[in-house]
Nucleic acid binder design. Structure first.
Lengths: 221, 221
DNA sequence: TTATATATTTAAGCATGCTTAAAGATATAT
DNA sequence: ATATATCTTTAAGCATGCTTAAATATATAA
């Protein structure tokens, strides 16, 4: 291939199937901020080129080749993010946008050199796993969104959504960083929000925010 | 702007004006490996957008804005080359191609962070000067191609052309590196080639090769 | 100076990746 | 089960950046 648009489609398709189980044109169009018609159009091309298994009105599937391609793009993206954050000191709310451009402009050789230079990081600055050269991804076992926790549960932040506009700068503002410990003080069922303890302060998180912060439970002592 | 093609046109135009004094569509088409018709087409667009001062059948001029843009692209390109070579260990015959892609995919912020990380290099791995943030370029005073040297002149390699296919890997093979000292043993007028002493060996360089290696004369002791 | 070669532009055409508007298919609610 | 809402596709159109072929301008040589 060698095509920014197509690469973005594949990555978006892969991520959504991974996170939600499936994706249909409507959602894909929303994610890519383009019209539904454009999606139909491109799906035909991706299908023609063997990356997507496209059947009218059905949810979108990747072929084996499409999936490999998408995972390689995720690898590129996340390695660039690590570089930007760790080596150049760019904040975690800026790296996504920058990596989005770089991922389309680097050879595999370059990515592998970067990977070596960074000493083979396993996760990006938001906690997302980095696929290895063969597309293998270390799935973390017991990661759940904050919304899944029960009252009095303690947990450690291990991943935050890097894909939602303005979310990261807000998360930073309330003290969310990878590794930070939190505790659920209360769950307000009527709006799905949760009251958490963080840095000894109590903060109420809307369900939308809470659903984008992923944690590992800490077993009670 | 934000356009790979247009950025490549501007860079090529700038480089040629800088090196040869002018550029016309025919040469530009050759440099970019596209048809003359495509060049005419694009010149109209670049002109419309205020980057080029285009007049039919005349040689191509950059506007002030076009020139700034081109110099910024050179800055990006060369900073990336330094990073690839110095930090990642990529050989100097590979960095150009890779930087060619990266230069179009990085914000000025990123480039400035890289510049800082690299401790403000002044030249790229081929010896080309790196424009600063304001587009200022340190012109080296007394640099000439090997073809300009006289018999028995000694000189130090300070720059090699990064733009000619396969030239760099050949240059590497015969021992040319930045800083390397050479001496002219003989000039063969009938074909323009020169016999040089390098690493205690005598090598004949065609005029084409010699014209792509730039040196500073060393004053006789 | 005129013929010829070379350079440049114009014209028509094509794939890409979008758009909007309209038509058609599917899903949801009553 | 049927009406309605939503989703998806089709159709037509547009800018971009190329192509080749033909027309025109400029440069070079005799």
């Amino acid at each position: 291939m060698n095509n920014i648009s197509q690469e973005n489609y594949l990555t978006a398709i892969y991520r959504n199937i991974d996170e939600v189980g499936e994706i249909k044109p409507n959602l894909l169009a929303a994610k890519l901020a383009i019209s539904n018609a454009a999606v139909t159009d491109m799906l035909r091309k991706l299908s023609r080129d063997g990356f997507v298994d496209y059947q009218k009105y059905k949810s979108i599937k990747l072929t084996h080749e499409g999936e490999s391609y998408a995972k390689n793009m995720l690898r590129r993206h996340r390695i660039w993010e690590v570089f930007l954050h760790q080596t150049l000191g760019m904040t975690w709310d800026k790296v996504h946008e920058e990596a989005e451009k770089l991922e389309h402009s680097s050879s595999d050789d370059l990515i592998n050199l970067l990977d070596e230079f960074l000493e083979y990081p396993e996760v990006d600055p938001h906690g997302y796993p980095i696929p290895d050269k063969n597309g293998k991804i270390k799935k973390s076992k017991s990661v759940v969104a904050i919304t899944e926790l029960g009252e009095n549960d303690s947990a450690k932040v291990v991943m935050v959504n890097d894909d939602v506009k303005n979310f990261l700068s807000y998360a930073t503002k309330i003290g969310i960083t990878l590794g930070k410990e939190i505790k659920i003080k209360d769950r307000l069922e009527y709006d799905g929000s949760v009251l958490i303890l963080i840095d000894k302060k109590e903060i109420n998180l809307s369900s939308k925010i809470a659903s984008n912060i992923f944690v590992e439970k800490i077993k009670p002592a």
